[in-house]
Amino acid sequence: MARMVTTRRKVISTAAAWLVGFLIFFPILWMVLASFKTELEAFAIPPSFLFFHWTTENYATVQERSDYFHHALNSIIIAGGSTLIAMLIAIPAAWSMAFSPTKRTKDVLLWMLSTKMMPPVGVLVPIYLIYRTFGLLDTRSGLIFILCLGNLPIVIWMLFTYFKEIPKDILEAARMDGATIGRELIYVLTPMAVPGLASTLLLNLILAWNEAFWTLNLSTLEAAPLTVFIASYSSPEGLFWAKLSAASTLAIAPILVLGWFSQRQLVRGLTFGAVK
């Protein structure tokens, strides 16, 4: 231990940290609790915290409305599809910039970063009109395409920073041994790149899953993912708190789990390597 930490200090910081952590987490906890209440109890004042009649009927109702699965499936296909395609385009690009950098590599990287800075609302009008013309409104492929482009700069950047850390000597050794570029890619690079690939995949899956500008504007029903489905609960006549909570819990649970795994990569991915 580097520094002497008194027990008293440890107790105080532990208590404070747990209290603050609990407060920050509370809205999510409260939502999960509400999802197990009846609609009446979810509304009740004073609210019941644990001693209510626990029920899973909201989850049953949400799933009975067959459209929940439809939207969940859309979320999986759109988030998964856009991430995979982005990875396929980004891996070669990042590989090339990390291992055969030229004088312009830095400029290319910064230019890619700057495309991410363009506010989506700045191009909402043309994208909407192009989509309308080509019948892409409310289609999964339309959303996959736009989310893929939106996240491509982040994917390339993350992969670049990971690839950059792979020691080049190893590649040269492999080349000396007569490995072709193909073999070099499969047997040398891939195993070393897997952790970076995995965390890039994870972070972008999360970003695409939660994306709520293009999904809200370009889809209504057929291709609508969970972000749009949940938004439909905002209409006054749709105010069923317990069901809203159940649908929300289902919508965020998988991503919360993935997010917890990728919290360290989050910093790296979202700051473009500016904070390590």
Binding site: N210, A212, I252
Partner: peptide, 9 residues
């Protein structure tokens, strides 16, 4: 955790 909750939720 809050960072991973979708905005509409």
């Amino acid at each position: 955790a809050p960072f991973f909750v979708m905005p509409t939720v």
